[in-house]
Design a binder for these strands. Structure first.
Lengths: 203, 203
DNA sequence: ACAGAAATTGAATCTTGATTCATGTTTCAA
DNA sequence: TTGAAACATGAATCAAGATTCAATTTCTGT
């Protein structure tokens, strides 16, 4: 309850003009970090792309790491929102699995820069990275738990299954979105879904 | 065929003494990079841990990045060797899948530093990272292809399945080896194997 | 025992790039 | 109309840390 905790974050823009500048910086940062990585990218690159002076950067962000973290969190919110919207009204777990996978890959393709930023956060802001995936994993495991108790899917260790399935998606995202996006989203999602649904065992 | 290509790499130790020093440096580098990451770790940390002077480092390595790459490659060789040894004589694909998963997790636990180095290589030496996983994936896909043609496993897109299954293992390795290794290797491997074998669909 | 070759040393160098700050410009409520 | 509060500027600062190198020590073959 000291002076600090009652004062507002003085880095937040107070006017529409400031908000616009901050948005330009975030956008520029996303592109630069995404294209060349955290360490290769310098503040000057970001401000140059945003058409502002270097000092302006520090009007809105404490440090280089802080923008980066902001982008990771933003990606978390956006991804969750996108996928949960796509799953609205889907009650069957297997159906949700299929649509979710598709939505995830689609989203990754449309947000390559942010996708890469999230991956890199493991080595730049590890706590942000863990939060990102832990939050997904919690919800995922919960869904599996519900579905298995309703008899929609096999019983199993839902923690482990959730981590495994997330890993599966993440790698597919890396391979078929970032490295090379020439394969059709459908083909990737369908192949993966067959694996998730039926496993490797014969019929 | 110029002077360079016929001359030996003058960074290679010529004597047993030199070989020992280089080994000390590699070991130290592995520990330091593994513990604090590439960018946090400085050459002075490595040489200090290895009990040599800073200059000695540059007798054996061109640069900081070069040791790092050497460690990634080393991890690749070692992992392949370890797993293929564990799979000697196993002809059934599902059995191989189970044993391979177990071996992988076990190996990750025993080599946390190198495991982390490989993950970080994505952002330090991306080509080395891609080589590492692409080499795994090629072999993996080949195995799946053979097994499915023999009718041991379901048919499916072996490229995609291989990437997906690798991702699954990698994430489990991260979560249950690096983040927290309190869960028994068996429990993780068994749960994941059930998923890989049977999928999520009810019996 | 002696001459090179191989190793080792660590202080000094040198680059890179994040962050600061003193100064100028805009906005807007009273 | 005016004067704070917000914004914006970009050259200068400053620290960090990779890499170098000239001098010194240890080996090794003969």
């Amino acid at each position: 309850m000291n002076q600090d905790s009652i004062s507002v974050n003085d880095k937040n823009p107070k006017t529409a003009r400031g908000a616009k500048t901050k948005a330009k910086l975030l956008e520029a940062a996303s592109l630069e970090f995404g294209a060349r990585g955290y360490h290769e990218c310098m503040i000057a690159d970001i401000t140059k792309r945003a058409n502002v002076a270097m000092g302006t950067f520090y009007v809105y962000f404490e440090s280089k790491e802080v923008v980066f973290r902001e982008l990771v969190q933003y990606m978390g919110q956006t991804t969750r929102a996108y996928i949960s919207k796509k799953l609205e009204g889907v009650s069957d777990r297997l159906e949700a699995e299929k649509k979710g996978l598709h939505a995830f890959i689609e989203f990754a393709r449309a947000n390559k820069d942010l996708y890469r930023i999230v991956m890199e956060s493991q080595f730049v802001a590890e706590d942000a990275y863990r939060d990102y995936y832990t939050s997904f994993q919690k919800a995922y495991a919960e869904n599996l738990r519900n579905a298995s108790s309703k008899g929609e899917i096999r019983n199993g260790d839902d923690e482990v299954r959730a981590w495994g399935l997330i890993g599966l998606s993440v790698f597919l995202g890396m391979r078929y979105c970032i490295w090379d996006d020439s394969k059709k989203v459908e083909d990737v999602a369908d192949a993966a879904f067959d694996l998730i649904k039926n496993g490797l065992k014969m019929g």
